[in-house]
């Protein structure tokens, strides 16, 4: 690990002032950042420890649920309000990482975790995300875990978070604090960026900006499902995942929000897919049409070609479960 200066922030204001110095990174749980620093994939000159800031609250407001950026993944998954009204979020969190990691990893850090592309981690290989302009070793290399949607010629990495996929389906927003004292709220939909020709720029965070909270709008009634497909039963990243919030009325789909993990550089959501489902009577043919729309632009890279039929089947299975009248499941 490269040497760095360590600064413990006493307040958000302190932390933001410290972050104005170039080469500074915030650290909270550290479960991803320290791993990347050990590999020298990330080499910040200064670490500002924000783990003791007062950003740990989970509060119910008229506008929904406010989750402080430092709430651990464990605490968020086990929170009684989340379990009752946003079970999708609990399920997605519990499907990720291990018990030890969830105890340390934070809500804000989970959103900002980096891809697990093997070439991003391997400093002997080219990677446009790690070293802009150096090339992409995953294109034409081993790319079993890589993106089939929204990728570019510069980068085919996927976003690894399960939590972010649930938050995308739940139409969450992110509250950001700026060094000058500004505060802004960004929908998760607009928070992440596709790789394009700048895959090293992953979010719309400005230099020095800090995530203060995640905001969830009030839960809509209905069924919530998180289905994750992975190489082993536990403690593995998603190959494909589907987060669904779906409400039936008189045998027809009245509301549908669907987000997908493992497919792209960010949690994926498609208005076309949801639009084709709403107002319809569920059927295998309908689910197939939804998958056609989801995957119309899908492109395999060789090793990951299997993700295209896997995404189709996972979506169909989730929709069948979410629209069935007599199944057990989490209801908001």
């Amino acid at each position: 690990m490269r040497a760095f200066d360590y600064i413990r922030a006493g307040s958000c204001k302190d932390a933001l002032a410290e972050a104005e110095t170039p080469g500074t990174a915030f650290i909270a749980g550290g479960t991803n950042l320290l791993d990347l620093m050990k590999h020298e994939v990330m080499t910040p000159a200064r670490l500002v420890d924000i783990s003791r800031l007062d950003l740990r609250g989970i509060t119910l407001t008229d506008a929904g649920l406010r989750v402080g950026a430092l709430v651990s993944n464990s605490d968020l998954a086990a929170d009684p309000l989340v379990r009752r009204h946003w079970p999708l979020l609990s399920r997605a969190l519990l499907a990720g990482a291990s018990g030890q990691l969830r105890n340390k990893a934070t809500t804000g850090g989970n959103l900002l975790q980096r891809t697990r592309c093997y070439y991003f981690y391997d400093t002997a290989m080219p990677c446009n995300k790690r070293e802009p302009g150096s090339g992409c070793a995953a294109i034409g290399g081993f790319n079993r875990i890589h993106a089939i949607l929204g990728a570019s010629e510069a980068c085919i990495a996927t976003h690894p978070s399960d939590m972010a996929v649930a938050l995308r389906a739940l139409s969450a927003e992110v509250e950001l604090l700026a060094p000058g004292g500004g505060r802004r709220q960004v929908p998760l939909a607009a928070f992440y960026r596709l790789p394009g020709d700048t895959p090293h720029v992953e979010t719309v965070l400005e230099p020095g900006e800090m995530i203060a909270a995640v905001l969830l709008p009030p839960a809509e009634g209905g069924r919530q499902i998180y289905r994750k497909v992975r190489d082993r039963a536990s403690y593995a990243f998603a190959l494909v995942s589907v987060a669904a919030c779906l409400r039936m009325e008189q045998g027809r789909i009245a509301a549908a929000a669907l987000a997908f993990g493992g497919l792209a550089h960010m949690p994926w959501r498609s208005a076309d897919v949801e639009g084709t489902l709403i107002g319809e009577v569920p059927s295998a043919a309908l689910f197939d049409r939804a998958a056609d729309l989801l995957l119309a632009e899908a492109k395999g890279q060789g090793d990951n070609d299997f993700k295209i039929p896997l995404a189709r089947r996972t979506l169909a299975a989730v929709l069948a479960e979410a629209t069935a009248e007599d199944t057990e499941g989490d209801r908001a």
């Binding site: 360590y6 783990s51 340390k104």
Partner: peptide
């Protein structure tokens, strides 16, 4: 609480 002590800085 259980954590991975390898992924944590002692100063923190």
């Amino acid at each position: 609480r259980r954590i991975n002590s390898c992924l944590s800085l002692a100063v923190m």
